[in-house]
Design a binder for these strands. Structure first.
Length: 484
DNA sequence: TTTTGAGTTGTTCGA
DNA sequence: GTCGAACAACTCAAA
């Protein structure tokens, strides 16, 4: 008699390489049922936004193709995961289910519910790690508490880091048992139709494990050179662009870590400044996930409690102008339009637009986080929440309240050739470089020559920078008053 | 327990 | 144009 099948429940780990749960299932020698469950009913779950749904569709398609090349395929099912998986176990006679651990609050609750449901009917649950380099339980301060400051967290991670053995690539896969029902991916309607607005996104990205590995190869193969400086320049291809691939688990952070360390080794030993700078970013991702794991209200509530009485302004017209990239500040508008078109925004520009929304417009960081959640292909609850809270000053680190980005200065500093602005704000393409970041200051003659009419072809600034800065500083003063 | 050092990413102003 | 100081005080982490 054949061994009972093992279900491998895919989640944010849509890859075949370095996949502990899949490797263990294949090694067990039983039939393997790979399944993805589209679960819209988990309590507290942040449902993927529009851009993320587009990516999910592509990534599932890609995973299915990879599985088929190995003699298997992906089973698709819709509904609450515990019920769906219990049904599938009954249907297939599976006696075990393996999965990669999740860290978001709703995911933690879901896994507990799943244990109860499945162990109750005699299906063994095995949970594996794979989405993080370090488990939240393993990185603790000297007194056993989770870290609240990045730098000590970073050092603790470096101390804990050791060469990790990656799980072997899966060669061929056991056949999926016959007669298992599967949804058609199209029936989930993850991608837009009428209109299909995803053209810019699909032109910019290659979702799936192969696309992720190609990007990592580019990184290890040369993109890292100059990374520490280049990563701040939105006009050039200087960042890894691995974020959506990491979010969907098309590549594991351990694969990324190893590739970077090995590339540095090959060039003769110790980590250079560029590689170290990149690995720091990877540890920031870890830090965000640890914070979310330990403080489950992180996505909605300010980490620093006094911020609940921050005097936000909440002007919907200003929020709309920001969302549409019509603020009158070129670097901001370029960023918001890059986001809308490609589902991604350069990291430096994310900071600038976020600071502008929260400080110059006094709009709650949660509104910005929601917009990013819907429009980013790399939207990740941990990273998004931690980053917005950091910019707002209510996050884990006490960022000085007076750190208010000036979009004109930031533009001149990090987009010195105006390449980024010209790429995304074409109506300013003819502006001379000297005024590309503050076109409203240009003389009438210059504007005319560049065919720019402020307030007509390009918006006038929606707030004055000095007044906005002053208003923000006054708002932060409120926090210093003693609490009620 | 107490003390000490330190904390991603900045801007403005005046010399 | 460049440079240093001021912009607050507080919490965290480790010795």
């Amino acid at each position: 008699m054949a061994a009972a099948p093992i279900i491998v429940w895919f989640r944010q780990d849509l890859r075949l390489h370095d996949h502990a749960a899949l490797a263990a299932a294949v090694a067990a020698g039983a039939p393997v049922v790979p399944v993805y469950v589209f679960d819209e009913e988990s309590p507290g779950k942040w449902m993927p936004g529009a851009a993320s749904r587009w990516w999910l569709h592509e990534s599932l398609k890609s995973l299915d193709t990879s599985l088929r090349k190995r003699g298997s395929h992906l089973v698709l099912a819709r509904g609450p995961a515990p019920a769906v998986l219990a049904d599938l176990a009954r249907e297939t006679g599976a006696r075990a289910i393996y999965w990669s651990r999740g860290y978001e609050p709703w995911a933690v609750r879901l896994e507990r519910a799943l244990y109860r449901t499945l162990e109750g009917v005699g299906v063994r649950c095995r949970r594996f790690s794979g989405s993080l380099l370090f488990e939240p339980e393993d990185i603790k301060s000297g007194v056993g508490e989770p870290y609240k400051v990045f730098t000590p967290f970073y050092k603790a991670c470096l101390n804990a880091a050791q060469s990790v053995q990656l799980h072997k690539a899966i060669g061929s896969m056991p056949r999926v048992p016959d007669r298992i029902e599967s949804d058609a991916l199209e029936s989930w309607e993850l991608q837009p139709k009428n209109p299909d607005w995803a053209g810019g996104i699909s032109a910019a990205w290659t979702p799936g494990e192969a696309g992720a590995n190609a990007r990592l190869d580019a990184l290890a193969g040369g993109l890292l050179k100059g990374y520490r400086t280049n990563r701040d320049l939105p006009g050039i291809d200087g960042t890894s662009r691995l974020s959506p691939h990491l979010h969907f688990g098309e590549i594991s952070p351990r694969q990324v870590w190893n590739a970077v360390v090995n590339a540095a080794d090959a060039k003769g030993g110790s980590l250079d400044a560029d590689s170290e700078s990149f690995l720091r970013e990877l540890i920031w991702r870890e830090f965000s996930h640890h914070l979310l794991f330990h403080w489950m209200h992180f996505p909605e509530k300010p980490f620093r409690h006094e911020f609940t009485r921050f005097p936000w302004d909440n002007d919907p017209r200003l929020l709309a102008a920001w969302q549409q990239g019509r603020t009158g500040y070129p670097i901001i508008d370029a960023g918001m339009r890059e986001l809308w078109t490609t589902g991604w925004m350069h990291n430096r520009v994310r900071m600038i637009v976020a600071s502008f929304l929260v400080k110059h417009l006094l709009i709650p960081w949660q509104d910005g986080a929601r917009w990013f959640w819907d429009t980013l292909v790399d939207a990740d609850l941990a990273n998004n929440s931690a980053s917005w809270q950091w910019v707002a000053g209510c996050g884990a680190d006490a960022a000085p309240y007076f750190r208010i980005f000036n979009p004109v200065l930031q533009g001149k500093k990090f987009d010195p050739d105006g390449l980024y602005v010209k790429a995304w704000v074409p109506e300013l393409a003819k502006m001379p470089l000297a005024r590309i970041h503050d076109p409203w200051k240009a003389k009438a003659q210059i504007l005319e020559k560049a065919r720019v009419k402020i307030g007509e072809t390009y918006p006038a600034p929606i707030v004055a920078l000095d007044a906005g800065r002053k208003r923000a500083l006054e708002a932060y003063e409120v926090l210093k008053e003693p609490a009620d």
